[in-house]
Design a protein around this nucleic acid. Structure first.
Lengths: 175, 175
DNA sequence: ATAGAAAGGTTATAGAGTAACATAGCAGGA
DNA sequence: TCCTGCTATGTTACTCTATAACCTTTCTAT
C-alpha cells in the first residue's frame, strides 16, 4: 500500500484488528458458538486492511502463514461461519469479504467502495435502511436483506486525482 | 412458471418485450451504435420474463433457438454491449442479467429480488439515489454507480406463503 | 475495391463456489 | 472412562462464472 488509502490514512489499524478480534471472541462466547483457530485466523487476515479480500486470496494468505495449503471448502466454511455470525460482510460487486466493525448490532450491508484504492467503507445509516424498507413496502415487498454497494472514488483518491490533473478515471495503480 | 409470479401476474408481457426491443432499436440508432442480430436476440431472451438470467442460461437458450452453439465470450460480449448501453442491468447477488425498462434515462440500479419466485423488480426512486449520494458526500466519497439489491419476498409470494401456512422459506419451486 | 475498425468465432484457462464423502476433535452421558 | 454423536476440518472432484488471446468475418467509409 503505497499511499495508505484514505480511511486508512489516519488511524491506528492495529487497533481495528485487536478490537475486532476481541469483539468477535466475546460475541461467540456469548452465543455459545465456537470461534476456532481457523475461523479466527481467517477473520484476522480479513482485517489486515480495509479492502475486501477474495476467498482465493485468503487461501494464499493462509498457505503463506501456515505452510499448509487449505482447499477451497475449508476457507468457504470459515467464511460462512463468519457471515452467519455477522462478523464479516460479503461484497457482491467484488466477490469478496470484509470485516464488520459492529458485529454485535444487527444491520444491513451498505458500502462505499473506491474503484481506485479498493477500500470499502461501511455506512451506518439506519434511516437509509428504513427508507429502503419503506419503498419496498409500497411495492408490497417484504424485505429480508439489503445490499447497497456504491462504487466511486473515496476522499483520498478523489483528492489525489484532482491534484494530479483533471483526469479522474485511470485508477493509478495501488497494489 | 406455475403461478405466474407477481408483477408478472397481471400484465401483458408480450407488450413488455416489444416495447423494450423497440426502445432499444431507437436508442441504438440515436446513438449510432449497432444493435446486431446477436445482441438483439440476447436482449429478447433476457426479456422473456422478469427474472434475471445467467450468462450460461442464455447460452443454452441461444443454442436451442439457433441450432448453433455459442461460446461464453460471444454471449459475454453481447451482454457487455447491452450493459454499456444501459439496456440491461447486472444483478450481482445472482450473477445474472435483467432487462431495463427505461434505458433512455440514466439511472441507478435498484432492485427488489424475490427469493421465492426469482423475480426482480426495478425501483425508480430518484430521491433514494439522491439520499445515497448525500450520505456518500458526507464521507467525502464521489459516487459513480449505485447498486441496491434488496432480497426478500414479493407481494405474491409473501401472500401465498402466508395463506399456505405459517412457513416462509421453502421457495416452492418455480421453474 | 480496399483499408481499417468493429463484431463475432474458437480454444484454452482463470476465478469462484459447492457436492460428497472421509477424518479428526470435542461434547455429554452411561 | 469409554462410548456415542455432533461439529469442524480435510480431500477430491466438479460446476458455474468469466476472461485472455488470437483468428476470421462483416461493416463502413473513403
Amino acid at each position: 500500500m503505497e499511499h495508505t488509502p484514505l480511511a486508512c490514512s489516519h488511524h491506528d489499524h492495529g487497533h481495528c484488528i485487536t478490537d475486532a478480534l476481541e469483539a468477535a471472541r466475546q460475541l461467540c462466547v456469548g452465543r455459545g458458538v465456537r470461534l476456532t483457530d481457523l475461523r479466527l485466523q481467517v477473520l484476522e487476515l480479513i482485517w489486515q486492511n480495509h479492502k475486501p479480500l477474495g476467498a482465493y486470496t485468503l487461501m494464499e494468505m493462509l498457505a503463506k502463514a501456515n505452510t499448509r495449503r487449505v482447499a477451497p471448502p475449508t476457507v468457504y466454511r470459515a467464511l460462512d461461519f463468519l457471515l452467519e455470525q455477522g462478523l464479516i460482510h460479503r461484497i457482491n460487486l467484488l466477490n469478496a469479504f470484509i470485516g464488520c466493525p459492529s458485529p454485535s448490532t444487527k444491520h444491513q450491508s451498505h458500502f462505499l467502495i473506491c474503484r481506485a484504492c479498493g477500500i470499502a467503507i461501511e455506512l451506518n445509516q439506519p434511516e437509509l435502511s428504513q427508507q429502503i424498507i419503506g419503498v419496498a413496502q409500497d411495492a408490497g415487498f417484504q424485505v429480508e436483506t439489503q445490499s447497497l454497494e456504491v462504487s466511486g472514488l473515496c476522499a483520498n483518491c478523489a483528492g489525489n486525482t484532482e491534484h494530479d490533473g483533471h483526469e479522474h478515471g485511470h485508477g493509478h495503480g495501488h497494489e
